[in-house]
Design a binder for these strands. Structure first.
Lengths: 150, 150
DNA sequence: TATTGTTATACTCTATAACTATA
DNA sequence: TATAGTTATAGAGTATAACAATA
């Protein structure tokens, strides 16, 4: 049986591969991971004030300015005024941004199918159970520094 | 039973949490993820030419110059000459770099214990089986763009 | 001629601090 | 006085291209 430590290494390898897969796919649409993340929020929740985006992304307002600048330049989003509060800038998807989001959603489905499609229900269920265990452990144990070599 | 798509979302959430956990832990040692990755290679394989590091990290030689500059400034590594080839710069761990690596290794163990420690052998084995399945799928299916919202 | 590492330049993500416009 | 977003400044990671030293 695999060592706990080896299993962690394998899990970290998965993290690296997933990250590379996403980054590469996004690059084809002229997107980066942080920009796609912002796009995704608009896709899910509709137009939003930059401040809200900063909170949701857990990033500084300044940073959102930069991300939105990039997405405006690439034609994925547009800035507009808020109806009642003139301090606020509302960010919304353009048509290109909407189709890129839809494409992301499809890619997501495809990836799920690739990863889990040929898995038996039995194995899938067991895997999800382990995943849940690991996730709850991780959410609880945020205190100590669990450093890893990636 | 959980949907395939939901399982993927949960897996991606795990990726985010693991990344955050690592990044935070490394920051306490004055390290970043890319620098720690470089350190880890030295820890595993001993002193190396920058060119080798660039290949291993899949990054440009120029980038390695920058990473090593930072690690030299923080006292984790030192540059030295190659014995026979005077073009080459050998990078090796300082004492601080070695102890930081050892600390990373301990953190790795702790994390493995946190994530899997209280898991039954049965569930652990099932999880690893699923992990292996997902990993091999991902390694094979590198062609298409599997874009995701992080 | 080929290889190693550097300087030069540029882009992205990130942060804090100071400032403007509005509330 | 407080909030939204900007400009100013800075650091880190990344890339390509041109160049120097060495092989």
């Amino acid at each position: 049986m695999l060592d706990r430590r080896e299993a962690l290494d394998r899990l970290l390898e998965l993290v690296v591969l997933l990250d590379a897969d996403m980054t590469e796919g996004l690059a084809r649409e002229g997107l980066t991971v942080p920009r796609a993340h912002l796009l995704w929020l608009l896709h899910q929740n509709g137009p939003a004030a930059q401040r809200r985006l900063a909170d949701a992304l857990k990033v500084s307002p300044r940073n959102v300015t930069g991300l939105v600048d990039g997405l405006v330049a690439s034609g994925h989003v547009a800035r507009g005024p808020h109806q009642t509060d003139r301090r606020v800038t509302l960010v919304s998807l353009t048509e290109r941004g909407a189709s890129a989001s839809a494409e992301m959603s499809r890619g997501h489905e495809e990836l799920a199918e690739l990863l889990f499609g040929e898995m038996t229900d039995r194995r899938f269920t067991a895997f999800v159970a382990g995943l849940n265990h690991v996730l709850s452990r991780l959410r609880e144990g945020l205190q100590p520094a669990h450093v890893g070599g990636r």
